[in-house]
Nucleic acid binder design. Structure first.
Length: 557
RNA sequence: AGCCCCGUGGUGUAGCGGUUAUCAUGGGAGACUCUGGAUCUCUCGACACCAGUUCGAAUCUGGUCGGGGCUGCCA
């Protein structure tokens, strides 16, 4: 697939270049995306997907999807399907290379036996607590396990019995014999296998011992012939172990490369915290349009190409950083501006009667499908003398700088007529409607005498309109870094992150828009049809507003 | 405290011994406009610090300071 071009070269690609130049892996480039099937993917995972698949594409290599399913008690089949769906939606194809770490359990077992034979692994009978206590701490070396010097034969026998199910969980464990006084804690005889009498989503009850991440990951990479094993920074301290294990085995040895995970202001990107928001009901689910999950963003109307663009422009590095939410928004708007079809909708309707047009007028106006894309052509929008406009577009006593409608003022009804407000209808103090007079010669929107009209507002013809519920979303948190400070991040949830508007009026063509298409309501922003829509009830999500200079000016006053 | 990693405009990012220190985003000003959108122009703004090597250092070396990670039978 021909994806968007990257803007800069990063340190990961520099390393790949160096590998190619030295011929370390021949001329092969083979990466992998290794999710654990225990939750839904979010934009942070997308950074890894785009990196791994992107590099494979650029270098004419391949990228696998491999589920890191080594912990049966946390993982579920349902997540496998959702993860694959999300990867596909993002625009990537693993072809026939869908793997599971659990595919390699037999090989992993054989290799463990091999290490035992070579004296590099042993069965430990200690409890979790004993092992923890004996590990030492950051400044104190660990102490040796009393079982560390068992004979190879005894280790072999015990390990076989672990596999056979003779021991309870926690009773025995297989450990790599590395160095209990190593300054890197990961090297203090790390656990390779633990007993878990649990049913695995893939292997069922075939196993009751399961490999740890450290024992499974590098070896799986090796089996698949991976060349660059790209992971996040927190695995940096695991690299010595990754290398140690592969070196003892003497098998294909990929290069682990670590990059900084993604952080975005005004949101959180951690499975645990996202889960908490779902479970506490602060959002409607993992696909709530406010969630930074891929499912949430899809439902919100973010196009996958915009996400790819965003991820490629923020780059990849080793510095921990937080990307401004505005940067994401820019990519969304930029993509949508170029691609989205334009429609009209009124979120907060104010009735307008055109006094000098026939009450039964049934006209249509030409409208550009997308002014940014002349090739998209034009279409017709129904027009009548009975309209609604946005309440915000009228002020009885407008401040300077306001160039929308006001008593006696003329504005352009977009693509229709120049209209002057001749009367304000009210119920008590509340304005309930307007009467306008239209310049008959301005049909289409241009003044017959060429006079300039500064304001242009949008409208919808009431007899043709469809009613809709529109959901307006805003950032999930009120502070840039919800994790900062010692308060609970949940207390920073933005109470206005969802505002529901009912009784909105939209042009009838909107009902023909399918799922997955994000369109523009002129002057308002980008929107999409929500799956909650039923036959009689149209539900629309606001993906993002248009930049609103007027709002900014007002806000700064 | 031990080990590992990282410090370039507000936010990201390029830079690989000699550049007016890149680009984007963001802020400000203006032009244009049938979306107060888009577009265009101008503008603001950074090499953490101190030594050293060198004719020359954001780039190399050492130190200081600052940030992050690591003490699951999680990944």
């Amino acid at each position: 697939m021909a994806h968007d071009e990257r803007m800069t070269k990063d340190f990961v690609r520099d390393i790949v270049d160096a590998h190619l130049a030295s011929g370390r892996f021949g001329q092969r480039v083979h990466t992998r995306f290794p999710p654990e099937p225990n939750g839904y993917l979010h934009i942070g995972h997308a950074k890894s997907i785009v990196l791994n698949f992107g590099i494979a594409e650029e270098y004419g290599g391949k990228c696998n999807v491999r589920f890191d399913d080594t912990n049966p008690v946390r993982e579920e089949e349902e997540f496998v399907d959702s993860i694959l769906e999300d990867v596909r939606w993002l625009g990537y194809d693993w072809e026939d290379r869908l793997f599971y770490a659990s595919d390699y359990f037999d090989q992993l077992y054989e290799w463990a036996v091999d290490l035992i034979r070579k004296g590099w692994a042993y069965v430990d009978d200690q409890t979790v607590d004993e092992i923890r206590a004996q590990r030492g701490d950051l400044t104190t070396p660990g102490t040796l396990s009393p079982f560390r010097d068992r004979s190879v034969d005894e280790n072999l026998d015990l390990f076989a019995r672990m596999r056979a199910g003779e021991f309870a969980e926690g009773e025995r464990v297989l450990r790599a014999k590395v160095d209990m006084s190593h300054p890197n804690m990961n090297m203090r005889d790390p656990i390779m296998y633990r007993v878990l009498h649990a049913t695995h989503h893939n292997t069922g009850d075939r196993w009751c011992i399961y490999p740890s991440y450290d024992w499974a990951h590098g070896q799986s990479d090796s089996i698949e012939g991976i060349t660059q094993s790209i992971c996040t920074l927190e695995f940096e301290n695991h690299r010595p172990l990754y290398d140690w294990l592969l070196d003892r085995l003497g098998v294909h040895h990929p290069q682990q490369i670590e990059f900084a995970r993604l952080n975005i202001s005004y949101t959180v990107l951690s499975k645990r915290r996202l889960r908490q928001m779902v479970e506490d009901g602060l959002v409607s689910g993992w696909d709530d349009p406010r969630m930074p999950t891929l499912r949430g963003m899809r439902r919100r109307g973010y196009p996958p190409a915009a996400l790819r663009d965003f991820l490629s422009r923020i780059g990849v590095a080793k510095v921990n950083s937080t990307i401004a939410f505005e940067t994401l928004e820019h990519s969304i708007r930029d993509h949508l501006n170029r691609t989205a079809r334009r429609f009209m909708g009124v979120l907060d309707p104010l009735p307008v009667t055109i006094e000098n047009l026939p009450a039964d007028l049934d006209d249509t106006m030409d409208f550009a499908v997308n002014p940014e894309d002349p090739g998209a052509g034009t279409r017709a929008i129904p027009f009548s003398a009975d309209l609604v406009i946005e309440r915000d577009d009228f002020m009885e006593d407008p401040p300077k700088g306001f160039h929308r409608l006001a008593p006696g003022r003329e504005v352009r009804l977009r693509n229709a007529y120049l209209a002057t407000c001749t009367e304000v209808v009210r119920d008590g103090s509340e304005v309930t409607g307007l009467v306008c007079r239209v310049d008959p010669g301005s049909r289409g929107g241009n003044a017959p005498d060429g006079r300039r009209v500064k304001g242009t507002i949008h409208w919808v013809s009431v007899p043709h309109a469809v009613e809709a519920e529109v959901r307006l979303f805003d950032r999930l948190f009120t502070v840039e870094d919800p994790m900062a400070g010692d308060g609970d991040f949940m207390s920073y949830i933005n109470p206005d992150s969802l505002v529901v508007r009912k009784g909105c009026k939209v042009e009838p063509a909107v009902t023909g828009i399918g799922p997955g298409e994000t369109f523009q309501f002129e002057r308002l922003g980008y929107f999409c049809v929500d799956p909650d829509t039923t036959d009689g009830h149209l539900v629309i999500n606001r993906t993002i507003t248009l930049r609103d200079t007027w709002a900014r000016i007002r806000g700064e006053r």
